[in-house]
């Protein structure tokens, strides 16, 4: 047997592949990120230190130090909107997590493959729906006279509710629409977590106990925690910037019943055009999101070994 048949041929130098090749491949993504992510953030940061109202160009855009931040932190409307947003978050998240988990567990059960595939596809529909369209659907569903919500209540013997014209009704309506849109997201994330549980461990556990709750708590939950952390981080960022759906449904009203922080910032930024203050508000929210995310990761995230 000749030597050539036993030894691998020396690799030919790959022409065109050099030290900078990976950089060229990465460059478009990095540049895009710089352009659409980093630059606007830096611009907002700089703007937050200036008096920057574009409808008053004659006043100029001078640097004013931390004045905008002081104004924001002493603005009672900012704090009440932030509190309302927190209330919205702690209302929707548990519902979405519980419902999402129930749906995921149902889809994780063996059998009915075709139906489950169909259900998984339909879960994507609310997620793929534009926020503004969700708002429009919400306006129709919760219309007092011809909305589906009141029709349904009528069937079960309850009188019509003024969903969008009472503070509690309007808040409940935006909660329901958000739950409708984002429960499938939680379900899909949890389903992915459940599919990570090794089959043999799950089977062994089923032999050990007939309690589904024990199975969930001791076997499946550890695999769900990374997903839960991701859900909480993404949802807190998302709730802080939730705008379109609420604006279309209620415009923050009636009164200030649904005046979430993003609605308020949009108003300051694009109705009053006080971009300095709006940027300071946005930067504070960014800091808040980062703090919340770090907390979630520290308190909840566990690697599964």
């Amino acid at each position: 047997m000749s030597d050539t048949t036993t030894r691998a041929a020396p690799a030919k130098p790959n022409r065109g592949y050099g030290r900078w090749t990976p950089a060229w491949f990465l460059a478009p993504a990095v540049l895009t990120l710089l352009l659409i992510g980093i630059y606007p953030t830096l611009f907002a940061l700089v703007t937050s230190f200036r008096r920057y109202n574009i409808t008053r160009p004659r006043d100029g855009f001078p640097f004013i130090g931390f004045e905008n931040y002081v104004n924001v932190l002493t603005d009672s409307t900012f704090w009440s909107s932030l509190l309302l947003t927190a209330k919205f978050y702690v209302t929707v998240l548990p519902i979405q997590v519980v419902l999402g988990l129930v749906v995921a567990l149902l889809l994780h059960k063996p059998g009915m493959g075709m139906l489950k595939s169909l259900a998984r596809v339909t879960l994507v529909v609310p997620l793929a729906t534009t926020y503004a369209v969700v708002g429009l659907i919400g306006r129709l569903i919760f219309n007092r006279d011809f909305g589906v919500a009141n029709q349904f209540l009528g069937f079960v013997g309850f009188g019509p509710i003024d969903w969008l014209s009472t503070p509690n009704g309007a808040f409940a309506a935006i909660v329901i629409m958000d739950v409708w849109q984002w429960t499938p997201f939680c379900a899909l994330i949890f389903l992915a977590g459940l599919s990570m549980v090794p089959g043999e461990i799950e089977e062994a556990a089923r032999l050990e106990t007939s309690s589904k709750l024990a199975l969930l708590r001791h076997v499946q939950l550890p695999y769900l925690l990374p997903g839960l952390t991701a859900v909480m981080i993404l949802r807190s960022a998302d709730v802080l910037k939730l705008f379109d759906m609420v604006f279309v449904m209620t415009r923050g009203g009636p009164g200030s019943a649904t005046d979430l922080i993003s609605i308020y910032i949009q108003r300051v930024g694009f109705r009053i055009f006080d971009l300095g203050t709006a940027s300071a508000q946005a930067i504070l929210l960014l800091i808040l999101t980062i703090i919340i995310s770090r907390l979630y990761i520290r308190l909840l995230y566990r690697e599964v070994h």
């Binding site: 009472t166 503070p167 923050g252 009203g253 009636p254 009164g255 200030s256 005046d259 108003r267 109705r271 009053i272 055009f273």
Partner: peptide, 17 residues
Amino acid sequence: WPAISEIVAEWGSKIEL
């Protein structure tokens, strides 16, 4: 006016409610 309109809109609704 746009800034004042926002205030009137918020508190006008609150009065009405």
